[in-house]
Every structure is written in C-alpha cells, then in structure tokens.
C-alpha cells in the first residue's frame, strides 16, 4: 500500500536553517544537514528545502548545500525557491536533489514546466502554488512569495500545470498558513480531485487531527509542516503512530 507522506520543510538562508530551531541532540541546529539527518531518523518521508536567499551569490551556496545534503541523507528531498531557468534545475538535480519546485517562474513562463518535464521527467517537477481565498475572488493563485495576486483561479492553474507536465503539486493556503487552525480542506480536496498527480497540502497544521483530516477528508497525498516540527510541538513518531491508529496508511 502506498503510504501518505509527512514532509518537514526547512527554510534556508545563505546555507543555514532559519527560524530558531531548538534540538538538544543536535549540536548545530542551524546546520541543514544535521537537521535533515535527524528528521530522516525520526521517520520523515521526505524533506523540502526552500532557499529564501535573495542574491545570486547566495544561490551558489545553496547548490553546494544541496550536494552536502544528498551526500548525507538517504530519503528523497525537494528543493525550491528562486528557480527560474532550466540551467538552475540542472545544477540542483546534478547536485543530488530528487525534485525541484517552481512557483513564480512557472506563472511568468508556464512553458518552463513543460521544458523541465521533457528534459528531466515529470517525476522531478513539483509546482508550488500559493493560494488565497477572498469572498470577492474565490481561491486565487498568488506569485512572488504570496505578494502578487495573479489572474489564475487555483483549480484551473493546478490543471494547467499538470497538463504541462508537473508531477506533483505543493499547495499552500495563505489563509491557513501560520494559523495552526488546520489545513484548507476545501481547496486541497478540490485540487486533489481535479488533478491526476499527487498533492502535498501545506499551511495551517497545528494538531495531529489536522493531518488525519487532510488525508481523510481532502485526499491529500502528503502533508507539509515547518515550525510545528522545528519547535518540537509535534514529534513525527508520535504523529505517525496517531495517524496509523486513525486508519491512515503510513510508514512506521
């Protein structure tokens, strides 16, 4: 049985983890490699690393870091943040990343998704979608780290990038992100039913029940969280045990 995936997400700036991650058993909690290895040991099913640095110089640091991560961890990982061209992706995949995620660049040039899928295969192309609901607009896609509203309705955009060759959708609800009030079950479920590729739900995880809900009610294939895991408000082995009891297919 294919299992649902639990995916910790790490924000990286200039080669270091940001957000004050606190782990007694990690000497340097800002070191992405040590943290990644710890998550792998805890039973994370895969990891996402988002490069939030701004300059090109810092991006070179990120590629070197990806290589270091690939050298040390034995579970799959996705890298994203600021990827704009085929050459960026080639560099990151050659460094050992399993998947890349594209967001704003796909909105600017949808053909990029097709180019990446043709060149590297759909299996390594994740399209990240930041979505926000307002009564006036419904669920709309936002670009540039959620700062700019686009013309795309979320469902239409998810279908379009899938047709272009995306192998996976990482869907973040901006309404839910940071609230710890639960995932956006409605839009996640709609997207998961509308596309034929796996969907990672992101934004809003606060309790173990939230994960059970997004798997059971919204048919998500994976669920992502950041601070909840980083601040050890929720331990992955405990979460996975709970989900198993709730009848979710999970790898323990």
């Amino acid at each position: 049985m294919l299992t649902k995936r639990i995916v910790p997400c790490l924000d990286i700036k200039n080669g270091r983890c940001v957000k004050g991650i606190q782990f007694e058993n990690i000497r340097d909690a800002g070191d992405p490699v040590q943290l990644a290895a710890w998550y792998a040991e805890q039973g994370a099913d895969e990891l996402v690393f988002l490069d939030i640095t701004a300059t090109n110089e810092e991006r070179k640091t990120f590629a070197a870091l990806v290589r270091d991560i690939a050298r040390h961890i034995d579970i799959p990982f996705t890298v994203g943040g600021g990827i704009g061209a085929v050459a960026d992706v080639e560099l990151l995949l050659q460094a050992g990343a399993d998947k890349v995620s594209v967001n704003s660049s796909a909105i600017r040039h949808p053909q990029l998704v097709e180019e990446l899928a043709n060149r590297f295969g759909s299996q390594c192309v994740t399209v990240a979608i930041d979505t926000k609901y307002t009564e006036l607009t419904g669920w709309k896609v936002y670009s540039r780290a959620g700062t700019v509203e686009t013309e795309h309705a979320t469902i239409d955009w998810a279908k379009r990038v899938t047709e272009l060759g995306a192998g996976e959708i990482l869907l973040t609800s901006m309404n839910n992100d940071g609230t710890k009030a639960g995932f956006a079950l409605d839009i996640t479920g709609e997207v998961a039913r509308a596309v034929s590729v796996p969907v990672i739900a992101s934004g809003g995880a606060g309790t173990m029940q939230h994960f059970a809900d997004v798997f059971h009610q919204a048919s998500a294939d994976a669920a992502l969280a950041a601070s909840l895991f980083h601040f050890r408000e929720l331990e992955i082995p405990v979460l996975k045990g709970f989900l198993k009891e709730q009848g979710v297919d999970i790898r323990i």
């Binding site: 995936r5 099913d45 294939d221």
Partner: peptide, 11 residues
C-alpha cells in the same frame, strides 16, 4: 484511478 506518478513509500 490512483494518482500517477506512483510516488512515495510502498511495501
């Protein structure tokens, strides 16, 4: 009817 690619951990 399941998602393709078959992606993730399976037994």
């Amino acid at each position: 009817d399941l998602k393709v690619p078959h992606m993730g951990w399976n037994q």
